[in-house]
Design a protein around this nucleic acid. Structure first.
Lengths: 204, 204, 204, 204
DNA sequence: CATGAATGAGAGTTCATTCAT
DNA sequence: TATGAATGAACTCTCATTCAT
């Protein structure tokens, strides 16, 4: 069906070109939405011709997928990196959570605009759905392992972590877009941290 | 410039037609995504001609908005309806939350497919953004009032309610789509109910 | 091919309806252009339903044609009506021309907006072309006869009248729309009257 | 909102393509009318795809405007070009006018079909109105200057020139379309030339 | 006779993708 | 390899005309 071969660039300049397309293309998609961004704009933003885009990517959709991978890897892991060097316990748990929330917010300020736009594609787009699914599992498992390593109560831990991730994710979303004037986000942050601590604490 | 008037149907058959366009149109949009659903399909699904769509709606976008209103009204209010007739207290709080969660899930099975698809449009679509914003405030306020009426601790109540809504919303989402095989959703539900009760309980 | 019979209305109310469609429809066409006026608007302006329009007219085009007939009859003949009662000679020629120009302008203020819009259709519309052709001949002949009756020099009179009609037509057009700020239309009127008198005067 | 850029073609083949769209598009519009010519036909006539039309033109309307410019420039200036090299005076005035009339007719045979079609748009189309307005002023001024340079009587000269242009324009129109069988156009031409000479001659 | 809801062909325009250079 | 001009299918929306009521 498709005649044109997709090249995997080997030369340095070509690799840079592919990276630029992913970076600037994904940024545009995040800003304006997938359907409101056309390939001509992506090519222009990346400083390449429209033709070359189709040397490196099967189609427009492919750019999105590659962007998603880059974005998710670059955001999540740095967020919990610092926990490798410390022992999490009752005493520093609050500050660890605070730090993660701050990093979450920091990392997202750049391109998070996309999150929901792309989350939405979950329903109409199999590839995107699979990506998010796997990504969420990975994050949940990574954090569960982290807590186990730090001797947290293992009962239903995976479920607890899942709830916590949702809480942090929602909180950060709102802070980033600061959607509701009626809500005091300092208070909300404290409520959430208290809640997380409560969820993680050993049963009496 | 644009002279074509948007009719508000008065005859019974016409009203049904408009409703069908909203219903089937919105369903299609939810299933396949807004950009992947075209007006011809919407008309066909509703059993009408493309022309009539533009008698009742300004444009395709307008169908989405009308769908959103129907969806949000028909989902949220029935969910808490039963609370008008009872007094919520420490003893029945758990069962009330359980009931709301069950209703939430029930109501959403029909059309919730849309939620993220359309949430996503928040970023590229002013009208959709405004709609969601107002809708979320309304829900938060309604539930806050409900709890105040039932003598719950008013400290930071709005923020607490907001956190709780997020928790329930996320939980239901996952249950409806049952995204993660690794997660035990019975356990997760219990964790969330415990968490909600903990959030709402008076400070010591 | 066409099943629906075009009715010629006989009842008074029906005749009035048909007249209203012609009047208000043609007015709209003149104001906004034939292609920018739709039948729904015409029906609304005439205070009738869209359906009834197609009882009295074959199609939209037919309304234009009927409007043209009314317009040309109602505009041209009143303009030279008064000349039936007087004798035109060298002494009153100037004032007769002035009077005709004034009447021309008066008559056109109402609906002349159309003239060029519809003139244009000459090229793409056979019926309109025929209408204008016949109308122009009729006017030329009527005025030629009028002048002959008043003993003007018959040499090349038809051609002279044709030139004169063009001159008056152009002048009135410009005055009605007052297109050019750079032109002094009092001066231009005088130049044209002088020119007409010169054209009509007997050769030496 | 609209991101698609209009390209200005630089390559020879592209320039030719753009020119072809203007030429064949304008020709079609002239023949069949603006509203009766669709972009698919224009593209086909020009031997290009519909898409490329929108690379070089903002919209269909833009093609018309470009066509108008080409047409007006290519018609008017060549018409009076020869007058740069000669001195116009009482002796050659008649032959100069004759020559201009002949050139006018020659030049228009190609595309004048459009004139009234497009003139008509004056009423419903701001851009077209402005174009014609400016074009008429330019022509009047150019000819006025030409006559002043040749020492014609400057009294009310601009108004006189305006009347003369109308006369010639109407004459040529009729000759080109040869509308009226009853009119002898040789006689009419002579009447008009006499009239022009009379208008331009110094007052006694 | 009259209505105006309904039709659906066809309009202008966009854009993912291809391909001649 | 790289370009960007070119393609044309597919989109949203309009409106002359019909027809059930």
């Amino acid at each position: 069906m498709k005649e044109t071969e997709i090249r995997e660039p080997v030369q340095k300049r070509s690799i840079e070109k592919k990276e630029k397309i992913i970076k600037y293309g994904f940024d545009l998609i995040c800003e304006k939405g997938y359907y409101n961004t056309n390939t001509a704009e992506i090519a222009k933003a990346a400083g390449v011709s429209t033709g070359i885009v189709y040397s490196y990517f099967k189609d427009k959709h492919d750019i999105l997928l590659e962007g998603l991978k880059r974005y998710s890897n670059s955001v999540f892991y740095p967020m919990i990196d610092f926990t490798n060097d410390i022992k999490i316990d009752d005493k520093n748990l609050r500050s660890v959570i605070e730090k993660i929330i701050l990093q979450f917010i920091d990392n997202h300020k750049l391109s998070q605009t996309a999150h929901e736009e792309i989350t939405s594609m979950t329903h109409s787009d199999k590839d995107v759905a699979v990506f998010f699914h796997e990504s969420e599992i990975e994050i949940t498992n990574t954090i569960t392992d982290l807590l186990l390593k730090n001797n947290f109560n293992p009962t239903d831990l995976k479920e607890k972590v899942h709830v916590i991730i949702n809480l942090v994710d929602d909180l950060c979303h709102e802070i980033i877009y600061h959607k509701h004037k009626e809500i005091d986000y300092n208070k909300m942050t404290n409520i959430i941290i208290d809640t997380i601590i409560n969820i993680l604490k050993p049963e009496k």
